[in-house]
């Protein structure tokens, strides 16, 4: 099982997230095209866990447009705490969990572990 992470650029928040989730099989996508390609590969898994780090409203709109075709993803969305417009749209993605970029990401680790236990084991 792979965890798919979309993060446009590496920064301290992303590094903190990676450190916290401590999961070996991670595939990192740096662009929406990358994300699309990876999602289109038949993975052998019934449900896929995807963590999206979304920095601004434009990125949110592009991701919403892409993910409209994928209805069975388990999404954890990390949004920028200062961008209210991003928050206003985040529920269009029907995420299973939402957190903020300045979080300690312990919460993401908990959610991820429970999802893996609940949906995969």
């Amino acid at each position: 099982m792979n965890i798919l992470i979309y993060s446009k650029q590496e920064d301290s928040d992303e590094r903190r997230l990676m450190k916290n989730i401590d999961f070996t099989r991670i595939h990192l996508c740096r662009s929406i095209a990358d994300l699309k390609n990876y999602l289109n590969i038949a993975s052998g898994e019934m449900r896929r866990i995807v963590i999206l780090i979304i920095n601004n409203h434009d990125e949110m709109v592009n991701i919403c447009n892409l993910l409209i075709l994928y209805n069975d993803l388990l999404l954890i969305v990390v949004i920028n705490q200062n961008c209210f417009k991003t928050y206003d749209n985040v529920h269009k993605l029907r995420p299973r969990y939402i957190t903020y970029k300045d979080s300690d990401f312990f919460d993401v680790a908990i959610v991820l572990n429970r999802m893996i236990n609940h949906y995969y084991l």
């Binding site: 029907r94 299973r96 919460d107 908990i110």
Partner: peptide
Amino acid sequence: KEFVVVDCGAMTETLVESV
């Protein structure tokens, strides 16, 4: 209006309460 999803299976007691 919003369609808001809560995954009750993905969260611990304290987390789901806060969410």
